[in-house]
Simulated assay, not measured.
Amino acid sequence: MSPSRIPDFVKLNDVTSFYRPAQVNGNVPPPSHSSDEPGLIVLCSWMAASPKHIAKYTDGYRRLYPRTEILLIEATMAGMLFSGVDLTFALYFLNTYTKGHGIEATARQPIVLHMFSNGGGKNAMDLTARLHELHGTLPFDAVIFDSCPGLGDIKGGTQAMSFALPKAKVIRFVGWYMLYLTTLLYVLIITVLGLEDVVTRIRRSLNDVNIVSKNVPRLYLYSKGDTLVHHKDVHAHVEDAMGAGYVDVREEVFTTAPHCVLLNEDADRYWNAVMAVCSAGKVGQ
């Protein structure tokens, strides 16, 4: 194991790292079951997210819940388009955590899944699918959708992936069109083969009550100012969730914030909504 790009995190592999308060701050006891603190936050960041931008959310969680562990899974362009990222270490970490803190509902603190954009949604979908295959149930007690899920769109998908390109103008110009052609080719292939595109699969899977329990509270954080993931597409997923029988579905709709930077509009409102759903997801409630 080696230091991560995120301060105080330990790297497990190229996309997975974790933060453990006891390793940074000394012998810090875990949250007690009587508190509203989650025991673990699983953070699925957006595609090509920079360390400084991810740190705004990891630091925010650390301030809110100083005794909570954080598992970070980063999104990659290849993981979005092809087979997905390597979740081996994330699965091992989750299995170790649940066994070490008690798998029974009354024997551990809540585990919160927080995903950003369609890139984070893809990793969340793959993670929940693997956990369901392995255990039949999921350990998550609250789910947070940040700026997702959207709908499949060639231009929007290209724009999202282009954040991973170098800053040099010529490289970005050429790279953007190469990504556009790659995305177009992907859409043509799955259309000809009659397959489901990845974004549609994300939307369907994360509203599948056979995988994500309908009793798990969920929060949607999104903005009308988002030009990559349209707010109407996120709200449509909210309506689908309620139609599928999810019993605690919350929305916090921002007005001007761009994609995945809702904190810039109103950080207090953002974190208050997060704390509310984390409390609602308290195990045993």
Results as ranks from 00 to 15, higher is better:
19 Y>D: 01
26 G>V: 08
27 N>V: 11
31 P>M: 06
35 S>M: 06
35 S>I: 15
35 S>L: 11
43 L>T: 05
44 C>S: 11
46 W>M: 05
54 I>P: 02
55 A>Q: 13
56 K>V: 11
59 D>N: 15
62 R>G: 08
63 R>D: 10
65 Y>H: 12
69 E>N: 03
72 L>E: 10
73 I>T: 11
74 E>W: 04
85 V>T: 13
88 T>N: 11
91 L>C: 10
92 Y>K: 14
93 F>E: 09
97 Y>T: 08
103 I>R: 13
106 T>V: 10
111 I>W: 01
116 F>N: 07
119 G>C: 08
125 M>K: 15
127 L>Q: 13
130 R>N: 12
139 P>I: 00
143 V>Q: 01
145 F>I: 07
146 D>M: 05
148 C>S: 11
153 D>Y: 01
155 K>R: 08
160 A>M: 13
167 K>E: 13
169 K>V: 08
174 V>F: 12
176 W>M: 12
181 L>M: 14
186 Y>V: 04
186 Y>M: 04
189 I>G: 00
190 I>Y: 09
191 T>C: 11
193 L>R: 15
197 D>Y: 08
206 L>N: 07
206 L>C: 07
209 V>F: 00
209 V>A: 14
211 I>A: 01
217 P>I: 02
220 Y>W: 06
220 Y>R: 00
232 K>H: 12
234 V>L: 02
238 V>I: 15
242 M>V: 15
242 M>K: 15
243 G>W: 10
244 A>Y: 04
245 G>I: 03
245 G>Y: 00
247 V>L: 06
248 D>W: 02
257 A>R: 08
259 H>A: 09
259 H>K: 13
262 L>T: 04
264 N>C: 09
273 A>C: 01
274 V>P: 02
278 C>T: 07
279 S>Y: 02
279 S>G: 05
280 A>T: 02
281 G>L: 01
285 Q>K: 12
